[in-house]
Design a protein around this nucleic acid. Structure first.
Length: 485
RNA sequence: GGCGACAUAGCCAAGUGGUAAGGCAGAGGUCUGCAAAACCUCCAUUCUCCGGUUCAAAUCCGGAUGUCGCCUCCA
């Protein structure tokens, strides 16, 4: 497959370094608060990448860390009167709750920063030994950016450009404004660990270098994360790992685009962010996942509840079609007839289109289009009397169903039983719109009575009332069926 | 100030040299007591603008405008 490599600024053919094995590291969360939609996007993107690589037959080792010690955690812990450890554990727990609901697979290895302090100290010592880092009188250790010639290769910056923006904050003992902390001396009351430089804790960038190196031999195949991590976080990781080992850190750097609100980055300072909880309170988690996959992973994605409602209609249509196909396939007798070649050719085109889209930098948006092609085709077979009764129709439906299931497995959507999903969706929409079910059922029953008596004026009147409530009724051979609009 | 990304129909969105996927909304039709759902048909001679390269450009190059991001913690 072709993957966009930030390091090279272009798509490159992805071939793992070691045969069938793929090693992938993605930066995880800093556990100090609930996850927001941005975390959801990043998690979904790398979850689909892992699923797709496995689908292709690769043996993937996926490592995703937890940052469980950090300024933000300490601050939040102090505010709320719990220990940093307790706080981090709480939000790691909440992270799993959200990820499970979004159908995100667990990573193979999920290292925590606080469990890898010795490795971090060792890495820091190596860097000092090689002249890439230095300690200060107060017990901080800084990485000497100018000692690493490749600094800036990921983010496309050069030392001179960076220098203009860099400042030494009061109290810092950096020798150069560009230098960044590997180890921070403990301030009073902070959690800390013993080190050759006194009590302290690791800097954020150091964690990922130490943990990735421990679990994945360098260079590993793919390093992922949000776009905003590319500088300085990933740049610093590269500097640390490559300066210490002399090896390349990762061959492919993959970055997902941001979630935006009204075309602006979602952030706490702008007060425009939504947590995953905010969303799944009102929408199915799978709707959110579907929505996130309707756009290419590198594009900025504008979130709104209107857009989510639109996505909800799309996913409902797919599940409704799956349900109909499953029902249609219950039939026992099929006539011996084949479908026209062009219908089969359309299925083949969709299959090929799906594969091409995923191969091309994991283009889930394009891939989704081919799912809809199959959905439409399934409906067409149902419309044509001679097709829907034939073995050709049966086989085409089966093939469509299998494809959607298989592709859905990779995307992490469309894997529920259609009836279950549709029913849950209905409940979710009823609740969100505050619809009184007993009132609806009363009206539907009254309408049925009116229809039985051929009082169509009354029946249509009731239907208008239902529409007013946000309910549509359809009359089927099995009776009236209602749904939320 | 430095670096970078993006600009495609009413909306969302694929598409990196060969003549504009898909979704949502909308219009007409089949079906229906009428509807709904489903399906069929239609819905961008054109891709922000101006130049250039080419037999050929939404796609490449230059410029303009606009939007956003990174340069401080951030998925």
């Amino acid at each position: 497959m072709r993957l966009y490599n930030t390091l090279k600024r272009k798509k490159e053919e992805f071939v793992p370094l070691n045969g069938n094995k793929v090693s992938l590291y993605a930066c995880g969360i800093t556990a100090y608060d609930l996850c927001h939609i941005g975390h959801a996007r990043s998690s979904v993107v790398f979850d689909v990448l892992v699923r797709y690589l496995r689908f292709k037959g690769y043996d993937v080792t996926f490592v995703r860390n937890f940052t469980d010690i950090d300024d933000k955690i300490i601050n939040r812990a102090n505010e709320t009167g719990v220990s940093a450890t307790e706080l981090a554990e709480k939000f790691i727990g909440e992270f799993y709750v959200d990820m499970d609901r979004l159908n995100i697979l667990r990573a193979d290895i999920e290292p925590k920063c606080t469990e890898h302090i010795p490795e971090m100290i060792e890495l820091t010592e190596t860097l000092i030994g090689k002249g890439h880092a230095y300690s200060t009188p107060s017990g901080d250790v800084y990485f000497k950016v100018r000692s690493f010639d490749d600094y800036g290769k990921l983010s496309g910056r050069n030392i001179e450009d960076l220098q203009s923006g860099a400042r030494i904050k009061p109290g810092e003992e950096k020798k150069d404004p560009l230098d960044f902390a590997l180890w921070k001396a403990a301030k009073p009351g902070e959690p800390s660990w013993e080190s050759p430089w006194g009590e302290g804790r690791p800097g954020w960038h150091l964690e990922c270098s130490a943990m990735s190196e421990k679990y994945l031999p360098l260079p590993f195949d793919i390093h992922g994360g949000g776009q905003d991590l590319s500088f300085p976080h990933h740049e610093n990781e590269i500097a640390q790992s490559e300066a210490a080992t002399g090896k390349e850190m990762a061959r492919f750097w993959v970055h997902n685009g941001f979630v935006q609100i009204n075309s602006e980055k979602m952030s706490k300072s702008l007060g425009n962010f939504f947590t995953i909880r905010d969303i799944i309170e009102k929408f199915m988690p799978e709707t959110l996942r579907y929505f996130l996959l309707t756009m290419h992973y590198r594009s900025p994605l504008d979130f709104s509840f209107d857009a989510l409602e639109e996505a909800e209609k799309g996913i409902r249509r797919v599940y409704a079609a799956l349900e109909q196909i499953e029902e249609a396939l219950q039939k026992a007798k099929w006539s011996k007839a084949a479908l026209p070649d062009e219908v089969l050719a359309e299925i083949e085109d969709a299959e090929k289109g799906w594969a091409d889209a995923m191969e091309d930098d994991m283009n889930t948006a394009a891939a989704m289009g081919h799912i809809f092609t199959l959905i439409r085709l399934a409906g067409r077979i149902a419309e044509e009397k001679s097709w829907r009764k034939s073995e050709g129709g049966r086989d085409a439906w089966t093939r469509i169903l299998e494809n959607v299931r298989k592709w859905g497995e990779v995307l992490g959507i469309f894997t529920e039983k259609p009836a279950v999903f549709l029913n849950n969706l209905k409940q979710c929409m009823l609740e969100r719109n505050g619809i009184d079910v007993s009132k609806v059922e009363e009206l539907v029953a009254a309408r049925q009575d009116a229809r039985k008596n051929k009082d169509f004026a009354r029946s249509d009147e009731i239907r208008d009332e239902l529409i007013e409530l946000g309910i549509e009724v359809k009359d089927t051979p099995q009776g009236a069926v209602w749904n939320v609009i």
